[in-house]
Design a protein around this nucleic acid. Structure first.
Lengths: 233, 233
DNA sequence: TAGCTTTGATGCTATAAAACATACAGCGAA
DNA sequence: TTCGCTGTATGTTTTATAGCATCAAAGCTA
């Protein structure tokens, strides 16, 4: 059962939403162009090669976007949290999806019609500008990822992924437990390594007291050290 | 000496230029916001960490954009041809440059003031939209690169790079010689491998009659086979 | 509950690619 | 001319990590 901190209302009310800056008239119009979909854990929202059918905003849950590579091996490109955008790149680029989106937990996704986006939202230069800024930053992130995933060694890549998870989802109330419970396979796919090596390296980090592991719960004990491992490569 | 096929005039006259769709009034105004810089081969246009000081368009020459990774090892993120944009991501994302730009040959670069871009061009929704489309596609490209550079084996990565060069710069009049004369080191940095391995693998391709090498001149003899090597990983 | 499947953990082996070493050709400077 | 310097080429060694096998524990389901 979803116990959402964020509801559909936040789509226009929450300053973190990209639609927050629209005028009231556009916000009212928006209501006529949205639909809401519910997904169970591990369900596909779209698949690589699909034609985008809308501008998607995650309302609640967690979603991974990944690409299939050589031999079907998947690389997680990014992960989304509530009010994050999904599949907008393909829609705005007028291309098919170049990655697949799968829920990591039960999720709520809001679909906004392409018509509203292209004929209404993007006519607003503030909105366009916000999209441009978002795309620019994500491109910067992607370029940086390309370099770290190719050049860092396995420990550095794993450390970077853990920091990424921390930055994206934050901690539980205890201030150390990551608020994301991924399988070892997903952690591996995020870090460009095999599942075995993800497990092995997590164990090593635990034995070095950098993290503590309890099933899928990961506690970061020494964030500075983790940062150093990541920087060092 | 530059013998440019493309001149400053093309900035507004050439349909391939991003400024082509501006209205005449904006085009006239643009003239007051540009300056032209000349660079010799292997000169820095900007460095990683620099604050962007304008929206740059390559008028003539070739430029590589690369990021420094672990131990100063460089990864070429992309390359530009005339009328291509340079460093626009950082400007539009309001960030510092996350990569460096260096000329591969003598080049001419046009700088457009941020003021014109933000207060004039981006107020035009068609222009904004074109930028959005460009960023979206480049982001798709970057994501795809991340996967291939991490997952493909050395032969696949090199084959992909050669195809990339072909797609970007095309062939000489003979229809087989790549119109880009990179050092082995640059080819290696484009393909995420060491210089030794780039040289070795190029030699192997040559012995397999997939390509022919004569110094920096590379002729693609069997494009289909190259494509297969790239796809196979 | 038992049996099946999935996930996590660990050791071993094979191998791709980096690192290192060396050689040589071309080129500009002294 | 000789001396370095840079770029290219190639052989050898070392190392990181993928791949595989095995086992334990947990979770599911019939």
């Amino acid at each position: 059962m979803l116990n959402s901190e964020i509801g559909l209302r936040d789509l226009v009310d929450n300053p973190k939403s990209i639609f927050y800056l629209l005028g009231q008239e556009d916000k009212d119009e928006l209501q006529h162009h949205i639909s809401l979909s519910h997904y169970k854990k591990n369900e596909f929202i779209y698949k690589e090669g699909d034609k985008p059918n809308g501008f998607l905003v995650l309302i609640d849950g967690k979603v991974k976007i990944f690409k299939e590579g050589v031999g079907g091996r998947e690389q997680i490109i990014r992960m989304t949290k509530p009010l994050g955008l999904i599949g907008y790149r393909a829609l705005l680029g007028d291309e098919t999806h170049n990655g697949s989106a799968v829920t990591l937990e039960e999720s709520l996704v809001c679909t906004i019609s392409p018509d509203f986006i292209f004929n209404r939202a993007l006519k607003n230069t503030d909105f366009s500008f916000k999209i441009i800024r978002k795309l620019s930053r994500e491109l910067g992130f992607s370029n940086a990822r390309t370099v770290t995933l190719t050049q860092k060694h396995i420990r550095g890549r794993l450390a970077e992924s853990l920091i990424l998870l921390k930055d994206k989802y934050g901690f539980e109330n205890d201030g150390t437990t990551l608020k994301a419970f991924l399988s070892r396979e997903d952690i591996a796919n995020l870090s460009n390594m095999t599942t075995s090596n993800a497990i092995r390296t997590l164990s090593t980090f635990a034995s070095e007291k950098v993290i503590a592991i309890d099933g899928r719960k990961i506690r970061i004990l020494d964030a500075n050290r983790l940062e150093r491992i990541s920087k060092l490569g």
